[in-house]
Write a protein that binds this DNA or RNA. Sequence first.
DNA 1: GTCTATATCAAGATAGAC
DNA 2: GTCTATCTTGATATAGAC
Lengths: 185, 185
Amino acid sequence: MPLVKTDEQQIIKSALKLFRKQSYFNTSMAEIAKSSGLLKGSLYHYFTSKEDLMKKVIISVHDYFKSNVFSHAYNDQWSPKERMSKLFESASHVFLYKEDGTFIGNIGVESAVMSPEFAEIIRYFFLDFFHAVKTIYHTVHPLEESEELAERAVAEIEGSLMLCRLFNTDQYLKNTMKRLLKRLD
Amino acid sequence: MPLVKTDEQQIIKSALKLFRKQSYFNTSMAEIAKSSGLLKGSLYHYFTSKEDLMKKVIISVHDYFKSNVFSHAYNDQWSPKERMSKLFESASHVFLYKEDGTFIGNIGVESAVMSPEFAEIIRYFFLDFFHAVKTIYHTVHPLEESEELAERAVAEIEGSLMLCRLFNTDQYLKNTMKRLLKRLD
DNA sequence: GTCTATATCAAGATAGAC
DNA sequence: GTCTATCTTGATATAGAC
C-alpha cells in the first residue's frame, strides 16, 4: 500500500465518498470528476474505465480495513475482548461515518450484482473479515464454533448496516456490536 | 389484492424475476418487455414509468409476504415454534428460489438507495417483517426482549442472504434459520 | 495533466398507425 | 393493446489542442 500517486488516491477517495452516498450506478464519471475538481475527460488519464476505477476503490477500502480494522484481531498486546472491541469500533466508525447526513452503504454488496469480477474481489474482503473475527473467537471457543460465530457476526453486522441505512439510524449496528462483544464472556 | 388485470400481474412477475437476478439498475425496460413477449413501448400502456413499475413490483412482493409468509405468525392453530418454522421456511423458499442458477437478491435494500420514495415502501415491508417475528417471540419472551430478538433476527436473515448471494451458496441462510428456531426453546 | 469537443450508445419515454 | 418509429437525455469513452 504505497503512498505514491497521491492524485490517483485522491480521486479514489472522492469516488468512494460518492459511491457510498448514492451507489455505483447512481454516480456518473462527471460527478466523480467534479468532486475532484476535474472534468470527466480527465479521469481517463488515471483510469481506463468506470469499472477500473470501482475496482481500485474496492481494493483501497480493503487495504484500509486490513491496516486499520482487521489488524486489531492479530495484536497480542490486548485481550481478546479488547481486540474485538477495537475491531468493531473501528469498523463501525468506517461503516457509519456520516457524509452529507447519509450513512455509508455497503458498497460491496450493492456492486456484487454488477459483474463476476467485482464479486470476486469483494469475496476477498469478506474472507479477511471472517478470518479476523474467527481468530479472536478462537482464543475462547473451539475452532469450528469460532468459525460459525464469525460467519454469524459478519452476517449480523451486514444486516444491521442495511437496516441502519434504510431507517436512517445507527441503532441497529450499535446494538449488534454490544451483543457480539458479549459472546466473548 | 385482487386477481384482476392478469396481464399487468404477469409483467410484474417477469420484472421481479429480472430485478432479483440482475438488480433494478441493470435491467432495462426493453428486457422486461421482451420477457413478457412485448416491445418496450408497450410497457407504457401499463406503467407510467420504470419507477412506477418498480414500486408495483415491491408492493406485489410485500403483498405476497403478507399472505404467504408473515401470516404464519398470526395463526393460532400452531405452536410458536411451528409458526416460526413455517415463517422461516416460506421466507427462505422465496429468498433462495433459484432462477437461472442465481439466488434472489434483496431487491429492497438494493433499491432503497434509489429514491426516498422507494425507501419508504420498503420500510413498510420490514416493519411488517419485524412485527411478525416479534409476535412469535412474544409468546415466550417479554415484549421488549421480543422486539430486540425480532430486529436481530431480521438483520441476521438479511445479512446471511447477502453472503449467500456473494458466495453463491445457501448455507449461511440455512444455518441462520436453524439458530433462530433455537431461540424459542 | 487538464482542457474542449465530440463520438457513440443505450436507456427511458412518447406519438401515432394499426 | 401492441406495434413501429422517433425523441430526448445522459452516460461512458475518445481525440486532440494547450
